[in-house]
Design a protein around this nucleic acid. Structure first.
Lengths: 232, 232
DNA sequence: CGCAGCCTTGACAAATGTCAACAAACGTGG
DNA sequence: CCACGTTTGTTGACATTTGTCAAGGCTGCG
């Protein structure tokens, strides 16, 4: 692959501390590809042949069962996904598809596992990454189990606001139908949920959200660091 | 702590490959305690001072928010819990309480982190453990998002049956109210769900479950290795 | 025995999903 | 740039699922 991406990838936490030679070896065996939107990169159940890294664009992780489908997460640059499957040499538990035109690095899982066995710093970095993934998954489970869809939406809005710098006006960067799926509801239900938040100081116009009463919204949403914080 | 537990703990995947000296050091700094039932061992939000290992009995991991509470998992001997928090030196995301009289090892998190930094084999073993935890969490999320409570119960029964060796008659080893919480529903709803499974070949009496029509139940439950398998 | 806790049941309410219709936004080809 | 068709979002009516409340039965234990 092209040298030009090296530094971007290298600066990822997972690769930052590892040995130079090992990193070079990983990169030499990898591919970079450009994908148009809506391309299914991997399908759940398949063997995990490659560790993926999104360089640009974005990728949706989703799962299906019995004709139903749900969006599990959205991956933004620059980060890896399906690390756990790669390490365990186990089948993917989620499918992935590009949401927009995206540039993706594919590193053969075999290589990752080989270097994982050789390079202790890499192994330690992977621990950090997996622990983070695990904790994120637990938070997401708590969100689902402990909150109604209206509460999930309210907290989602607060999280996005925080991400965007705290302004009272924010933009939805995702399609509403996908947001609905991510929040575990139907598009129709999401439409009504937005209306249901009006009494708590939220108005929506297209993908522009206006928080007219921050305190009211927070009083209703009751955000918790143990569910909503990206860090911790 | 007493030598007698060493071998049990040592045989855990996380500790199996690590250096003898390191293992000794870990054990020297640790405590073993007996707890009566219903004791809260840790509370979510607290700093993670100890890595815990259940030697006997069982422990419930649960979470609360806004007056609601949900059971997230049950830990059986012999296994660790809250490893991710220990490694990240981050607050617990879940609380834990004994379900019965239980014997628990407490290893100071500092020690675990120190040895994690020193012993590469330990670090690699932790990767395996965390990847497993992560994948289990993903499966649980899929179960919640993609299935109705009736479907979750049906698949739970099939999983328990498999665990118990495949017999058509199995025992519920947990209180129904806790099972309900684990499955993400109310006790009342669980009662009705059991009745709702009668047409699919399941009858319940107390904590004895009888699968009268295996095929019918499986046709309804549609178990999937990507959600229901313990391994993979 | 009598209390306490769990489980069950029924009646009802709230949350969420489904279906159908329509409006709005978007993209494509002329 | 417009016309067209496709997709997405919204809305209403309704069905299903799930939760809530209250009552009563069952069980285990002092």
């Amino acid at each position: 692959m092209l040298e030009s991406h090296y530094s971007d990838i290298r600066s990822l936490e997972v690769f930052a501390a590892m040995d130079d030679d090992q990193f070079e070896a990983l990169m030499r065996g990898s591919y970079v590809q450009n994908f148009p939107p809506q391309i299914e990169l991997i399908s759940e159940g398949e063997p995990s042949d490659f560790l993926h890294i999104v360089l640009s664009g974005s990728v949706d992780l989703f799962s299906s069962w019995n004709g139903r489908e749900t969006s599990m997460a959205t991956i933004h640059p620059i980060s890896t996904f399906i690390l756990a499957a790669t390490i365990k040499d186990a089948p993917y538990l989620m499918s992935a598809r590009t949401l927009e035109k995206s540039r993706v690095v594919l590193i053969p899982s075999q290589d990752v596992r080989a270097i994982f066995m050789r390079d202790a710093e890499f192994a330690r970095a992977i621990v950090g990454e997996l622990a983070q993934c695990y904790r994120t998954a637990i938070k997401s489970t708590k969100d689902l189990r402990l909150r109604t869809s209206l509460e999930r939406l309210a907290n989602y809005i607060l999280r996005q606001q925080k991400r965007a710098g705290g302004s009272a006006k924010i933009e939805l960067l995702t399609e509403k139908r996908r947001l609905a799926s991510y929040l575990g509801m139907t598009p129709e239900n999401l439409s009504r949920a937005f209306k249901g938040l009006v009494p708590y100081g939220v108005t929506v116009n297209g993908n522009r959200i206006h928080i007219t009463d921050q305190e009211d919204l927070e009083r209703f949403a009751k955000p918790s660091p143990l569910i909503d914080d990206y860090r911790t």
